[in-house]
Simulated scan of single mutants.
Amino acid sequence: MSESRRCGLVAIIGRPNVGKSTLMNHLIGQKVSITSRKPQTTRHRIHGILTRDDCQIVFADTPGIHTGQQRALNRAMNEAAMSALSDVDVICFMVDSDKWNEGDEHVLSLLARAGDIPVILVVNKVDRLDDKAAMLPLLDKLNQRHDFAEVIPVSALGGHNLDVLEQALVSRLPEGDFWFDEDQLTDRSLRFMAAEIIREKVVRQLGQEVPHQVTVEIDLWEDGPRVTDIAATILVERRGQKKILIGDKGERIKSIGTQARRDIENLIERRVMLNLWVKIKAGWSDDDRALRSLGYDDSRQS
């Protein structure tokens, strides 16, 4: 073991759509977790890996913790998020600088489970505030509710103060050798990443037209001499959702495929032939067995 090196696990938690995936992607310097303006875009606990000369931070980007667990999918996402609180070295609790709601309150109440794990309060989107002093009442209130190791204002999207956050994390990591190769960015497979890229394009294009009852399965992955052939199925729950997803004369699914193919080519650094299919799998998002078969179980890594 190299005593001069540090390595450890950092959990990023918060309510849905607070910027957790954006923060991790910008810290690492490359897109690992998919993003959109739609809440609950992240569904799995995804490990992103940031390696410097003398340290390696393994981030657990989690689904947004939210109240109400009526559907099996919501329960699976909350379980993935809460499991990130165990056996980590540092927790980043992320909140908006100008917004506090019951979702934030719920996550704050769960921090009692963290025990003696240091929690850094990461206040996001400070670039939106003309008067930075406007967030002081919120910070005072939160400091009275939990003994935060540090409070760091950032702009995840703009990159403001991320170097300060990185140093705060590194200083709290244990000494030890790196867990992953220095050029590795995530512990997820390329197939998983490709499926997530396709799902991101669906979520971004459709907005509120098709709710979260959409998931993606990779059916074929063949690396040829010059081109990688990939076939994927987009699963929806109702016939109307399938019709919206395909679009008039197939234009919507074609656009999704074009955007996804470009990102996958950037990911694997070779040409891709991508074929997308849309199928109906009624009730998959409220079926525990179906969710396990689709990979919504963080005890198994895709």
Score class of each variant (00 low, 15 high):
40 Q>E: 09
82 M>L: 15
47 H>A: 09
35 T>H: 06
40 Q>K: 04
184 Q>A: 03
12 I>V: 13
225 P>T: 00
178 F>C: 00
279 K>Q: 10
104 D>H: 04
159 G>R: 12
194 A>F: 12
267 L>C: 04
198 I>V: 15
36 S>L: 02
240 G>A: 07
130 D>F: 02
150 E>G: 14
17 N>F: 05
83 S>Q: 14
80 A>P: 11
92 C>Q: 08
146 H>S: 10
279 K>M: 10
259 Q>K: 09
212 H>T: 13
253 I>Y: 03
279 K>D: 05
72 A>E: 15
248 D>V: 14
262 R>V: 11
73 L>W: 09
128 R>A: 02
23 L>H: 01
296 Y>Q: 11
112 A>H: 10
139 L>G: 09
69 Q>F: 13
42 T>N: 01
202 V>T: 11
249 K>I: 05
49 I>E: 02
11 A>V: 05
91 I>Y: 09
177 D>R: 08
237 E>Y: 03
78 N>M: 13
280 I>E: 14
224 G>F: 07
128 R>D: 05
163 D>A: 13
248 D>K: 13
66 H>Q: 14
182 E>V: 10
255 S>R: 01
138 L>E: 10
299 S>N: 14
59 F>C: 00
191 R>A: 12
285 S>W: 08
285 S>N: 00
250 G>P: 06
104 D>P: 09
292 R>E: 15
172 R>A: 06
116 D>W: 01
173 L>Q: 04
86 S>L: 15
264 I>L: 05
18 V>M: 01
224 G>N: 13
247 G>T: 04
217 E>L: 13
37 R>T: 09
94 M>A: 09
121 L>P: 01
153 P>V: 06
272 V>M: 03
9 L>S: 05
117 I>A: 01
238 R>S: 11
238 R>K: 15
290 A>P: 14
269 E>N: 12
298 D>S: 12
53 D>C: 00
106 H>K: 14
190 L>K: 14
67 T>C: 13
34 I>M: 07
172 R>E: 02
68 G>N: 12
23 L>M: 01
35 T>M: 08
290 A>G: 12
86 S>C: 15
88 V>H: 10
114 A>F: 03
103 G>L: 01
113 R>G: 09
245 L>V: 05
161 N>V: 08
159 G>Q: 09
174 P>V: 03
202 V>A: 10
236 V>A: 03
208 Q>W: 14
22 T>Y: 07
110 L>N: 05
192 F>N: 06
1 M>S: 15
172 R>P: 04
200 E>S: 10
126 V>I: 11
257 G>Q: 00
87 D>H: 14
23 L>I: 01
297 D>A: 14
75 R>V: 10
233 T>G: 08
228 T>A: 14
292 R>P: 12
121 L>T: 02
6 R>A: 07
69 Q>E: 15
265 E>L: 00
134 A>T: 06
195 A>G: 15
